[in-house]
Design a protein around this nucleic acid. Structure first.
Lengths: 152, 152
DNA sequence: GCATCTTATATAGCGCGCGATTTAATCGCA
DNA sequence: TGCGATTAAATCGCGCGCTATATAAGATGC
């Protein structure tokens, strides 16, 4: 009966924490956001705010739902976040003329300028992962794949 | 100059959203938690609550910080969560006799019983991922690895 | 024995993420 | 033209996850 404690029994179970992909994903994401929190403090951005800025640096003037489709977030999450970024002077929210339902999100001078500071972030993160670029690309593609399958 | 739009230029940049491992991780985690939300509605658990239950099903009677070490969460997150689980009748929080600073978290009858319902969850999730067990194990190990490196 | 340090938990406040609902603008179609 | 259906944002409420701080119990040193 050696080793037959509750703990060891449970390692065999499908419910064992360390066997769950979900927990591996969850805890890796927590760890990643901790790394970003530290790096982004210098830019006065939160991690989701940084993602929104990435979207806008790619293409300025997108609508709220356009940003949402890119990040898989809805207006309930984005509206308050965008208001905070507007409050910080990084962007402006303006109702579209053609379709008054839509709100275009446009970077300010300051918002564009922040990009320069942000350029340093990806390298710091890659360094923090202690992974090779190849490993990271593979993991990234696996995760994109997983996301797509989970969403279907 | 064909194809030289803002958007295409930015795909080359290190800041391109779709090149970020962080975003792949973030969006996969969002998608995963959506899958769990749906499945866990039947158990009246949130995703983090489910993780806490996994920890307690593995070993009952752990302290708050013991659970926290396992899940990489601290008391600021766990205390309110545990109070909600206590309110739902799944566990009890009791101060330790030996060390009055510690709080032991003990499953109730109902908390133990919920495990039976939970047994069905992992298979549903594996199905939702549309991945082979091998693929999932590899991804899980890669993520554990990443988490460890990020935390160091 | 007592002050000081450390540790375990709890609390307060903020920013997500999201389900549910609301408001307002546009579309479809008779 | 007008009216119901659809769409885009916004709002509300809740549960995390975290920083900072508080409280209280144990450990340590003199």
């Amino acid at each position: 009966m050696r080793g037959m404690t509750d703990r060891n029994d449970s390692q065999e179970s499908l419910l064992a924490l360390d066997r769950q992909v979900c927990f591996a994903l969850y805890s890796a994401q927590l760890a990643m956001s901790k790394v970003y929190r530290k790096l982004l403090r210098e830019l006065d951005l939160t991690y989701p705010q940084y993602l929104v800025m990435l979207v806008l640096w790619e293409q300025d003037g997108q609508t709220v739902s356009g940003i949402g489709e890119r990040l898989f977030l809805d207006s309930a999450t984005l509206t308050p976040l965008l208001k905070r970024l507007e409050g910080a002077g990084l962007l402006q929210r303006q109702r579209s003329r053609q379709d008054e339902r839509q709100v275009a999100v446009v970077l300010t001078e300051q918002g564009h300028k922040l990009r320069e500071k942000a350029e340093a972030v990806p390298e710091s993160v890659m360094c923090a992962t202690q992974c090779s670029p190849d490993e990271l690309e593979r993991l990234r593609d696996d995760l994109h794949n997983l996301r797509e399958r989970l969403a279907s």
